[in-house]
Nucleic acid binder design. Structure first.
Length: 305
DNA sequence: AAAAGACTCAACCGCGGAGAC
DNA sequence: CGTCTCCGCGGTTGAGTCTTT
């Protein structure tokens, strides 16, 4: 195996000197699973010894929580899950374990990796410091609506006649239509994939930012489209409208030209002030988005997320 | 087909909090 | 109150894999 023995940091005895590191073997996995089945989770150092594993308790805990635990979900994050991550991260920042509590079956490690590899990558490409106001604006004004659109598309394709309208309710939270969504509901009573209850799942937007999706006008395209509106004006925001459309033939793949200037005029640093926007969202097959802002076009590729 | 670069994600590390002594 | 151990969290690393040239 490629794993190596390691010397313990404190070097107190021979047992510790034989501690293993690196990838886990099948045998180690089954030892750990068996031992947890007998004794339950917790007391990881004891568990490691009981199981006869030459691993630290920490390592055992990590292996169990991030990989072996039976209810762990595999596969790509769904748009719903991505949306929830964005929303919760805007609330709590890098509190990965807290965020993970609201995504049953997903681990903090997985969410952290998602954030670093996808979201922060986008930020880098846009020359935005992740976590900055501009970045938060970009997340809220572009990525979240796009994910909502994906959700809507999934919803309408899986349940043909049900409502595909996503509405804001009076508390400025977002109610998603019922559909065949996997279990991202924050309620942990269900461990199986369920149709989630939109009474339980709301996305909270700041007061000045409401959003809803409307049915597209039918003559534009027969592809799924939506219009998202963020109607509240910001007091000291100028009149520049930023809006999406989809001149599909634009094949410039860089995103550095994305113009976030209209978002940088906020006066308060800790609100998620979103300017008055009126943007048409129309997906292309390649899922590449073009932002039109004051005559400049640039591409916003959400598949990377 | 091979090399280089980019990406993913499992695993490790260091730190801080909690609890026992 | 101080020290020690355990546990959990967030940050980081690096091997393996995938994609591009």
């Amino acid at each position: 195996m490629s794993s190596t023995a390691t010397k313990p940091e404190m070097g107190s005895n021979e047992e510790e000197a034989e501690l293993r590191r690196g990838p886990w073997t099948l045998e180690e996995d089954s030892l750990l699973i068996h031992c947890i089945a007998l004794h339950g989770e917790g007391r990881w150092n004891m568990l490691a010894k009981t199981a006869g594993l030459k691993r630290t308790g920490k390592s055992c805990r990590l292996r169990w929580l991030n990989y072996l635990k039976p209810d762990i979900k595999r596969g790509n994050l769904t748009p719903q899950e991505q949306l929830l991550i964005l929303e919760l991260h805007s609330k709590w920042g890098n509190r990965w374990s807290k965020i993970a509590q609201h995504l049953p079956g997903r681990t903090d490690n997985e969410i952290k990796n998602y954030w670093r590899t996808r979201v922060q990558k986008q930020a880098r490409q846009l020359n935005i410091e992740s976590g900055s106001d501009r970045f938060i604006d970009a997340v809220r004004c572009f990525w979240m609506p796009r994910l909502l659109q994906k959700i809507e598309q999934n919803s309408s394709s899986s349940s043909s006649s049900s409502s595909s309208v996503i509405n804001m309710n009076s508390e400025n939270s977002l109610s998603l239509p019922q559909g065949e969504f996997t279990d991202i509901a924050a309620n942990h009573t269900s461990t199986t994939t369920t149709t989630y209850n939109n009474n339980n799942y709301n996305l909270n937007f700041p007061d000045h930012c409401s959003l809803h999706l409307q049915e597209p006008s039918s003559e534009i395209s027969d592809k799924p489209t939506s219009t998202a509106l963020i109607p509240q004006p910001l007091e000291n925001y100028n009149n520049n409208n930023v809006w999406f459309n989809n001149p599909v033939q634009d094949h410039s793949y860089g995103m550095e030209g994305l113009n976030l200037e209209p978002f940088s005029s906020r006066t308060e640093s800790n609100n998620y002030g979103i300017p008055q926007l009126d943007y048409n969202c129309q997906s292309s097959e390649s899922d590449q988005w073009v932002l039109s802002s004051m005559g400049e076009y640039s591409l916003w590729n959400l598949d990377d997320m």
